[in-house]
Amino acid sequence: MAADKKDGLRMAPRIIVEVVMILVSVFFLIPFLWAISTSLRLPKDSLNLPPQFLPTSFQIANYGSLFTLFPFFPFILNSIVVAVAVTVFQALFSTMAGYAFARIDFKGKNLLFIAILSGIMIPGQSIIIPQFLVVKTFGLMDTHWAIILPYLIFPLGIFLVRQFMMTIPKSYDEAALIDGADRFRVFWSIILPMSVPSVAVVSVMGFIGSWNNFFGPLIYLNTWEKMTLPMGLKVLSGFNGTGSLSVILAGVVISFIPPILIYAFGQKYLLQGTTLTGLKS
């Protein structure tokens, strides 16, 4: 009885919260709607006011001219190649290190863990110049390696995987080790499969990081053929000759597709895969 009354009283705030949440979600989505509908408009109508958030016409031709006027497809391909490489190797390195830090006792473990973890605290801008010199010394300027290798180390990822693996009882390793399996087998066929959620989280974060990487290509890549999407879109938006915002926005819309797929794949793991035990000092 009392509970019922309470629920009745809560209806009003509930509706308010729901309305606010809907408005908020519209705020997050409206730029995408505008981009999609404008990319389908005649180039000369692209800047029209009042703004239209829903398509008013369907000029698929804008997407066509994107590919004929501009080497757009290679950008997407480059971005995918780089992002996949970063994701796979970063996840592998992070899970291996996370496993060792969580489940193997070795000399200097804590010190090394703290050293690597301190990488979270180092602003990328403070190390970009020596990093540039390393890339240059290795002769990797203007290659995709330059935007893969420096990004394979992901301290936060190591931390998250370690936290997750620490929650798995040690008896799993012990039993397998007594049965004669070696550490690598234990890692690969027992602990790793159990840690899939956290590996997925790290992979999604790695993919997003690489997919969004603007600064790296800005300083490491020079030639057109090597460009990834973030720089490509920047160039596209300053490019005389595409003729209009509609065509540029067609490029913008296409760039949304891979992250949509990644999100659709990763979002369920994203929520179950992380136990956020704190950064204890």
């Binding site: 300083i219 020079n222 057109w224 460009m227 300053g238």
Partner: peptide
């Protein structure tokens, strides 16, 4: 033929890229 993309700021970006190529050894 190598095309150098120049962002919004035209020649400035382009010259920076050429200098980077020279500095980077290619």
């Amino acid at each position: 033929v190598t095309f150098i993309p120049a962002g919004g700021s035209g020649w400035n970006d382009y010259f920076t890229k050429i200098q980077t190529m020279i500095a980077g050894g290619n």
